[in-house]
Computed example of a mutant assay.
Amino acid sequence: MKSQGNIVCFRNLKENTDQAVALFSDTNANEQIFIETYDYYIKEFNKGVQELRAIATIPNDVNKLISEDDQVKFVKAFRNLIRLQNVSKSFTEFSFSDLNLDEQTFEDYKSKYLDIYDRTRSKPDEEKESLVEEVDFELELIQRDEINVSYILKLLANLQRDRQADVTSEEYQSQKASILELIGKEAQLRSKRDLLEKFIEERLPTLEPEEKVETVFQNFWTQERIEAIQQLCIEENLKVEAVNQMIADYKFSGKEPLRETVLSACNEKPKLLDRKKIFARVVSKLLDIINKFDDALGELEEEE
């Protein structure tokens, strides 16, 4: 297997290639089969930057996009840049210096993009009838599996060691700010951002020299998860054991609980007209808890 470099083949495979393309593609589709040159994607990216700047000149201008039409235009424009950047990065000659948007500004726009996504997800179900809600944010384009809670804990452990090594306050605060910034930029960590920030701001400074960050964090995370489930049970008048079972079943099968399962978890049988709303609301809150506390954790192992 050749993992790097260019593969050179001297056989004439055009006929086989044409047959493969004809077999696996729709000849009437507008879909692109072969990748264009590096220069093509750079030009398209820079053209997209102009379109983006026309909507929001700087990242903070995204906050001024009040109408849904303008927000949708921004989402689509930046989504196009994400796609083009991902393709461009596949070329060995890729460099941000070729783009009319520096890396930090790109990340700042990405943060605004994710802010809009977060706002659409945080709306109650009955309010989720908007143009922005219908847009596919394609978060898989910007998710990076290597940045998870386990990775953040390693950074925090290093930060803790530096604090114990008597680094200057300025250096410590700078490193902490960098970690917080990373958490804010990572799509799959954004649901955990508030809790991670709470741990960093409130619990991390109180750690004793003999305490391990990973152990303390696990205890903190477990307690926060218990409180979140208890809060759900109070809000929806549910049985704690039934809620824990529904979460366990979802994690095992990947399937959302049935309507009858959710309704049977209620301490009081809901009225007929309320059942549909209660079912949708409970499932949404269950998935939020799973997304926040169980997904993208990584292996939370203690350091020796």
Rank of each mutant, 00 (worst) to 15 (best):
E93I: 00
P124L: 14
E103V: 06
N86W: 06
I55S: 00
N60L: 10
R83L: 13
T105R: 10
V75H: 02
E107S: 14
G48K: 09
F91L: 08
S97F: 06
V87R: 10
A54G: 10
T120I: 07
S97Q: 14
N86I: 12
I58D: 03
I58T: 08
K64R: 13
F106L: 14
I58S: 12
E107R: 14
D61Q: 02
S130L: 06
A54S: 15
R83K: 14
L52N: 14
P59H: 06
N60G: 13
I116E: 02
Q85P: 00
S88G: 09
D70Y: 02
E126M: 07
R121Y: 01
I66S: 11
S130C: 03
L99S: 09
L65D: 02
S95N: 08
I66V: 05
K112H: 01
F94T: 06
R119P: 00
T57Q: 15
N63G: 05
N80L: 13
E126N: 09
E68H: 09
I82E: 13
I82Q: 14
K112S: 02
I58P: 01
L52P: 04
L101E: 07
V49W: 05
L114R: 02
Y117A: 13
P124Y: 10
I66M: 06
E127T: 06
S88W: 03
D98G: 04
N86G: 15
S95Y: 00
R83H: 12
T120S: 15
K89Q: 15
S122W: 00
L84E: 01
L99I: 14
Y109D: 11
I58N: 07
P59E: 05
D69V: 06
T105Y: 03
N46F: 08
R83Y: 12
K47W: 02
G48W: 03
N60C: 05
N80E: 08
R83F: 14
F96P: 00
L81E: 06
Y109K: 11
A56V: 02
V49I: 11
T120E: 15
K128C: 03
Y109L: 13
K110Q: 15
R119T: 05
V75R: 08
D69E: 08
D118M: 12
F96G: 12
S97L: 14
K112L: 01
V87W: 05
L99D: 02
S97H: 09
F78G: 11
R119Y: 07
E129A: 08
K89I: 11
